Every structure is written in C-alpha cells, then in structure tokens.
Simulated scan of single mutants.
Amino acid sequence: MSRKSLPALSRRMFLVLSGIAAAALALPHGVLAAEPEYPAVSAVAFDGDSLLAGGANLVRSDDGGQSWTELSTPGPIQALATHSERPGRVLAGLASGGVALSEDGGRTWEIRSDGLPEGEVDAVAVASGQPDMVYATVRDDGLWKSEDAGQSWSFAMDRPWLEETERDLLTLASVDLETGMGGIWIYAGTEAGLTRVPDCFCRWQDVQPGNAMDALVAGDAPPSEAPLPAGEAVRGLASAPSAPDTLYSALPSGIWTSRDGGVVWLHLMDGSASAVAVHPSDPMQVVAVLDGSLQISRDGGATWAALAVE
C-alpha cells in the first residue's frame, strides 16, 4: 500500500473531529467509545469466475462459493468494482474515505485517492468499454471520475435533484447502451429511486424508453408498465456485460431485474437486499446480499441458494 502525507484539515473534518472529541469527553470515566460496526458483507463482485465479498473484511472464493480465503483489506469496504478486460483488478470504495485498487485479485492494495474530497465512498464503477475509466461517489458530494485507473480524479457531476433535495448516490453501474449523444449510460441508485446520466454528464434523467435525446424532447418520463417501487432506495445495481439490457437491483423490498435497460422491472426475491453483482459472461448468474446473507442464483433469479462465507 502506498504511503501518503496527511491532508490539510478541512473545516468539515475539523467539525467532525471536534464532535467526536466532545462526545468522548462526555463519556463516564473509564468508558471507551465503541468502534463503528460494519456489516460482514456490504459489497459483492465477480473477478472472472471468482467471487469477492467485502465489508468489515474481504474474502474471495475461486470455487463458486464452496470455500473462501480471507484477504488483506485497505479498510472497511462499502463498494467493489471489476472489469472483464482487467482480470485481477479490483476497485474498492472505502468507508473511511477514498478508493483503493488491487491488481492481484484483492491480495494487495494501493490507495488511489489523489484529487478526491474527504468523505465515505459509497459506490465505485468501471466504464464498460474503457477499463481505465473509473467512477466513484463521495458522500455529501457527488460523482467523480478518473481516466487513469484512479491515479488522479476530477469532478464529473453534482448529485441528482430528486423530490426537492439533492440525493446521495448509493450505487453505480456503467451500462453499455447507447445514449443517442455519442456515449453510454451511467445508472445510479439513490434513496429516492433510480436515475441515470449519459457519460457526457449533461443531466440526470429518469429511466424511460428511448435514448437521451428522446427524453429531452419528451420532457417528463412517460409512466412505465412496471417500474421499481416509487420512493424506495436503490442500494445496489448491476449490469450484465454480456447482455447490457439485463439489469439487477437491490432494494429494501428484495431483488429486481429488468430485461430492457431498466424501463420494466420484475420482482425476483423478497427480503432486504443491499448489494448485487452479475457474472461478466453469464447474465443468468447473480450474487446478492439478502437479509445480511450471501445468496447466489444461476438461473437469472428464479431460484436462490445461500452461500456460507467462512
């Protein structure tokens, strides 16, 4: 892991640290503040045929989830991203702030956060056709991009304005479907639902039939026959690289899928879902975190089996 000098103390961080210090002083003598608790699994990803599950720790399975190996971790992990053209490369969004990158399947890590602001990184994604183009979302900030696999970062887009307020981006997916504006889409989940933006970063849009130009002409999105539940948080998103029209999402109501790029959704599985990933070459093989446990489906979500992470 690379060594970095400590950043200058920002006003926001000064206030945060002051609040922590005040809370610690308020504790009874001899009582220590508890360490923050992180979920056992908060993020999942496929690295080729292998599975990665991250949270408080990071584990890897090379045999479909039958056995697991604990790996080193740069810190509690909020999000994971990989790309089929870069086997072994894993991108991690950290709960402590920043992004880390591994080139050996998660065994060793390097911090890649130069230019990123302070704050928890809730989501990371790799551009479908450009494996060195990566995206990250920073809590209370917005969407950031890097064209050199995280060596340097620049601001890409403000948070979307939904239901009269800016909404944090909880999850990201690069979706290899044409926007009509010379690029492809970035889909994002927020606490208020699903949104997307062309990778030219013109404006956030509702998901509707047609391309971005059609949406600009049509104005308000037409009602969908079967959208995701209105106002429900979209915690996880995955686009199948081999079938980009196929999407999976993780919501408090369970796992959902779309076969038309997110216009019409089908409910697959009940439960509280928090993360989802799809195999790079098999759009029917899906892994999800459901009610805190890891589940796998090999038939597009029709049936599921629990994976014991040990």
Rank of each mutant, 00 (worst) to 15 (best):
G300A: 08
G93S: 01
D132N: 15
A92N: 00
S249E: 02
L80R: 00
L228Y: 04
L27D: 04
P209E: 02
S67L: 04
S96N: 07
I77C: 01
R86P: 01
A306Q: 15
E191Q: 14
R159Q: 13
G300Q: 13
Q285G: 04
A92H: 00
M284Q: 15
L307Q: 04
A306Y: 14
V90T: 04
E164H: 11
F46H: 08
L32S: 12
A123I: 00
E35F: 06
G150L: 00
A34R: 11
A125Q: 07
G48M: 05
L143S: 03
A212I: 05
D199R: 06
M284D: 15
P229H: 04
R3L: 14
D63W: 01
S281V: 12
A79F: 01
E35P: 05
I111G: 10
A277G: 13
R112W: 02
W304M: 12
A100E: 02
G210E: 07
E120Q: 08
E35R: 12
S274T: 10
W161S: 13
V263M: 05
A100V: 00
A79I: 00
T165W: 04
E103G: 13
F201I: 08
G182T: 04
A21F: 06
D282W: 06
S297I: 09
E164W: 03
G301L: 08
V309A: 03
G150C: 06
G193T: 08
S10G: 12
Y38I: 05
V44C: 08
G236P: 01
S152A: 14
E163N: 11
A125P: 08
L51Y: 12
R167M: 10
F155R: 13
M269D: 05
D260Q: 06
L266S: 14
G98V: 00
D63C: 10
A240K: 10
V99W: 02
N57R: 14
E110I: 07
N211S: 10
T73Q: 11
A79M: 00
A306G: 14
R3M: 09
R12A: 14
T171M: 09
S293Q: 12
T246S: 13
S128C: 11
L6Q: 15
V59C: 02
A40V: 09
E103Y: 07
D214Y: 10
S113C: 05
D49M: 09
V286F: 09
G75M: 00
D47M: 02
Q130E: 15
T190P: 11
H83F: 01
V287K: 02
Q205P: 06
G301R: 12
M284N: 15
Q205S: 14
D299G: 03
V276F: 06
V234P: 00
P117S: 09
G219N: 03
D49P: 03
D114E: 15
P280A: 12
F46G: 11
L91E: 01
A302V: 12
E225A: 15
A233D: 13
S253A: 13
